[in-house]
Design a protein around this nucleic acid. Structure first.
Lengths: 147, 147
DNA sequence: TTTACTTAGTTGCATAAACAACTGTATGTC
DNA sequence: GACATACAGTTGTTTATGCAACTAAGTAAA
């Protein structure tokens, strides 16, 4: 059985993920026009902290699929924006726990609404079962390459 | 009818496109271990030129979904690597036509093989009809946001 | 307790993206 | 020809990524 799913011309767009790039750009535009002063990358870190405030930088690496230097600098920038604070763990002083500020907590509702709005626009006209299957395929791709 | 396809926890990975990021990283690793001295972004420009040698920078913008400054700098770097040459169009001197060098032409076969290999690994165990549907959904998403 | 190893995070460097402001060239209208 | 306008490409700034090399702190074995 052939594993060769790709005609030549389609290969590039699958690798570059133009759909997810389009989604991210659309969400960024919504942030900008709504006066939300955040990059998508900064938002993706806040997103994890809204789920688990006080996560370590290493935990943020795992959750956002980034390496440690990336998280160091994203946290740097979020600190400059007064959205998070680094707090050194008392038991293990290597670890920084990252805590949301009041301002960051306030951003959750608005930005999550913009994110859901963006996804609904992106998936408009796509039947729910196809969305479901697409998510499964993409998860499988991820697992194939990281398992 | 509700358009609300997303449970909270799934939203983030759809926006970040972790599957396509994983594919790009895997391909980059294959380049590195095969001694191919190219970034994925540089490769994506060469990919277009292999299909249409002599394309203008603007055409490369459209084909790779990048803005003009991004292409300017990618072409800068490809020129430094002696993989392309800028040639000013005789009829319209605003336009740079980008031509592949011998070295770049030589890279096509090897890197395309690595790209196909990567995609086959990524899609291993995914039925062809699901891949097809997934491609359609992602194309629809792109069209929804850029139409 | 000294040594080796591991883990968490940081720093330096090269590459890339987004946006705005810019130069230079072509085109169309008066 | 002189003007405005549109288009192709470049440059500057900020932010982000990937990799390698590094520091600091904890752990475990001699």
């Amino acid at each position: 059985m052939s594993n060769n799913h790709f005609k030549k011309g389609e290969l590039y767009s699958f690798i570059t993920g133009k759909a997810s790039i389009a989604i991210a750009r659309r969400l960024q535009k919504k942030f900008n026009t709504s006066g939300v002063n955040l990059t998508i990358e900064q938002w993706s870190v806040l997103y994890q902290l809204w789920k688990h405030d006080g996560a370590s930088q290493q935990e943020l690496c795992n959750a956002t699929f980034r390496d440690k230097p990336s998280i160091t600098r994203l946290v740097d920038n979020l600190e400059k924006l007064n959205l998070v604070n680094r707090v050194s763990d008392e038991k293990d002083r290597r670890i920084n726990k990252i805590y949301l500020t009041r301002a960051a907590i306030k951003l959750q509702e608005e930005t999550m609404a913009l994110a859901e709005e963006t996804l609904n626009e992106a998936l408009s006209g796509v039947p729910a079962d196809q969305v479901e299957m697409c998510k499964e395929v993409l998860q499988k791709v991820y697992d194939n390459l990281n398992g």
